[in-house]
Design a protein around this nucleic acid. Structure first.
Length: 604
RNA sequence: UGCCGGAUGGUGUAACGGUAGCACAGCAGACUCUGGAUCUGUUUGUCUAGGUUCAAAUCCUAGUCCGGCAGCCA
């Protein structure tokens, strides 16, 4: 199967059903979604689910999906995250939904237009003429601060918002509790003129942080906490990564999000379940402003929970800050950059997202589903190579010293078009320590004293002698080869139970190989207690592997399977040559091959 | 004791009043110069109780259980 092929059936879920119906009944003629991360951390595989949903819908229904930084809280956000998010999104949708990515010209802010005879703000993505990527940037909620302020003023002038001087603690107390109504703020009855004046002075920077907020005037007795006069604006005298020191007044998520959607012409605003209770507020804000164009609607789906991993940005940041991993892109991290570095392809992530579906049920997805998607993808594309992780020397006593045979081996049995390479064979080879046992358990069919095994692409060998050092460790295996059993030879058809991989000792090249395992030892690391107590102490092991010469030509964009071991990808560290000036080979193990023997052996 | 959601095999996910299907996992077998891949077979399910109907996972009623909501976070 071609690795770039799309799943046979088009995805279907309750959100796509709604989109299709909106198109069919003429509610919309064009679909516009958005992916709106807050730039306060790196994107993880949960975001990948959302990206695949939002861009997938745009792609399937001929629409656009805007990438938007939801950056209304200057104290938590940073350009480092803006850059990583942009790169991760591009990487994930590359070759799949690039044509649906909504960006805007650098520096562009909403235009003041007239829609249906009314004043309006609008900012459309670039389309049509292909603009150089360097001239484009994501959308930013912070680019709408002027318009948002204008809308807030409008609400205030209409008596639907007021300036409140209650302290944060008092505000909390007045809010009541879920089962008890709140109380009106004493400032709720301020005159419109005073509210407008105060709000303008808040913007002008006359008041310190925390002294006043702008609140919507809705209903302090509402059973929905988010309708109890929610805060719309708060004062923050801090520098913003995108707007600098222009503002000391910042909108809250609820106020900014629905209006950002509106300004961009979003039709379907898809978010996770925890925002479900915010939806009445989302609608209230839009409906209480005189907006001339079609209003966006919000839909919610369940965020991804994956076994053996944590998804909280806060906790991932702790792993990074406390140096429990090497960084956001540590190959053990569930971040998109970590998965990328590990060798996972965008295709595998998209297949995974497709397989898990979209619902409103808070499910815990089995990591096996992810692993399956990664293996399927890599099996189809990876080039096979021979490498020995934990070498033990094997000498073929009846093979001439100094003789070298070049054996032809296919690059990928799943794809003959991938061609072949030559593998040198000599008298002394390395084999995997695990592939020999002096006293093997039942059903072990690799090498044993007196036993036979095939060296892949080469000869069948028989183990005659086990040589040990003074300490009793095996130092060498002495074998004889059936010299007629070479692939294509007269006795090649002989059946031997096992086939193992090997590397010619004289030709072996060294590579650093980083063997990654899952970061946590339990299915739900943050279910209870300290998630760090469940860190897997063996999540990384580094070995120096003996590799066939062709491994020296490895390229970062390709994926490799070290036969019988797993899938590997070149680490970016490999590019930074050491002081010697010689290129270093560093591989990350993306994932092991499925190992049914290990499972069987464990059981007995 | 408030509001908003949700509940289908071990785990996810379909079925939109008409044969409970698919994927992953598991198990058994075939094949294999990767104990991989591939192929075949297979165990296991509609939260409970009533009701409507020729017929209910689906509609109605009453429960049960689970998740979310009281940041000047998103």
């Amino acid at each position: 199967m071609n690795s770039e092929s799309v799943p046979a059936a088009a995805p279907s879920d309750f959100i796509r059903d709604i989109v299709a119906a909106d198109l069919a009944n003429g509610r919309h003629t064009k679909i516009h979604t958005r992916f709106p991360p807050e730039p306060n951390g790196y994107l993880h595989i949960g975001h990948a689910k959302s990206i695949c949903l939002n861009f997938g819908i745009a792609r399937e229904f001929g629409g656009i999906c805007n990438l938007r930084m939801d950056d209304t809280n200057p104290t938590k956000e940073d350009v480092e995250y803006v850059d990583s998010i942009t790169a991760d999104v591009r990487w994930l949708i590359q070759g799949w939904a690039d044509h649906c990515l909504g960006l805007k010209p650098k520096g562009k802010t909403p235009e003041t237009v007239t829609s249906a005879g009314k004043p309006d703000f609008h900012l459309a993505p670039v389309s049509g003429i292909r603009q150089p990527a360097s001239d484009l940037e994501p959308f930013y909620a912070s680019d709408y601060f002027d318009q948002l302020y204008e809308y807030a003023l409008q609400l205030t002038r209409n008596g639907l918002a007021y300036v409140c001087d209650l302290s944060p603690e008092e505000t909390e107390r007045y809010r009541g509790s879920p089962d008890r109504p709140g109380q009106d703020s004493p400032f709720r009855t301020r005159s419109i003129a005073e509210n407008v004046d105060l709000f303008e002075r808040m913007k002008a920077g006359e008041f310190p942080d925390g002294t006043r907020v702008l609140r919507a005037k809705i209903d302090m007795a509402s059973p929905n906490i988010w309708m109890r006069d929610p805060v719309l604006y708060r004062i923050r005298h801090s520098e913003h990564h995108h707007t600098g020191d222009q503002w000391c007044l910042y909108p809250m998520y609820d106020f900014a999000h629905c209006l950002s959607d509106y300004i961009e012409g979003i039709t379907h605003s898809i978010c996770t379940l925890e925002f479900e209770v915010h939806r009445p507020l989302y609608d209230w804000i839009l409906e209480n402003l005189d907006l001339p164009r079609a209003l966006p609607r919000q839909f919610e789906f369940a965020r991804l929970s994956l076994g053996y991993t944590i998804m909280s940005k806060r906790k991932l940041m702790r792993l990074v800050n406390e140096r429990l991993v090497s960084g956001w892109d540590d190959p053990r991290m569930p971040t998109i950059s970590g998965l990328r570095r590990r060798g996972v392809t965008p295709q595998a992530l998209r297949d995974f997202a497709y397989n898990i579906g979209i619902t409103k049920y808070n499910a815990l997805t089995d990591v096996a589903v992810l692993e399956k998607a990664i293996r399927d993808d890599l099996n189809a594309r990876a080039w096979r190579r021979l490498a020995v992780l934990r070498p033990i020397k094997l000498v073929i006593t009846n093979y001439p010293e100094g003789q070298v045979e070049q054996l032809e081996a296919g690059n990928n049995p799943e794809d003959p078009a991938a061609g072949t390479r030559q593998v040198p064979f000599t008298r002394e080879v390395f084999i995997e320590r695990d592939d020999f046992m002096e006293t093997p358990p039942p059903k072990y069919f690799r090498l044993r004293p007196g036993g036979e095994v095939r060296l892949k692409y080469a000869y069948i060998v028989k183990c005659d002698e086990v040589v040990k050092d003074a300490a009793g460790n095996i130092s060498e295996l002495r074998c004889t080869a059936d010299l007629g059993s070479k692939t294509g030879g007269p006795t090649a058809g002989r059946k031997v139970k096992g086939t193992i991989h090997w590397v010619s000792a004289a030709h072996a090249i060294d590579a650093e190989v980083r063997l990654y395992d899952r970061l946590f030892t339990v299915p739900e690391p943050d279910a209870r207690g300290d998630f760090k107590a469940h860190l897997n102490p063996h999540s990384l092991e580094v070995v120096t592997a003996k590799c066939e010469p062709a491994v020296g030509e490895a390229r970062p964009e390709l994926r490799y399977q070290f036969e019988r071991l797993g899938y590997f990808a070149l680490d970016p560290d490999a590019a930074t040559d050491g002081a010697s000036g010689k290129p270093r080979l560093i591989f990350n193990r993306t994932i092991t091959l499925k190992d049914t023997w290990a499972k069987a052996a464990q059981k007995s």
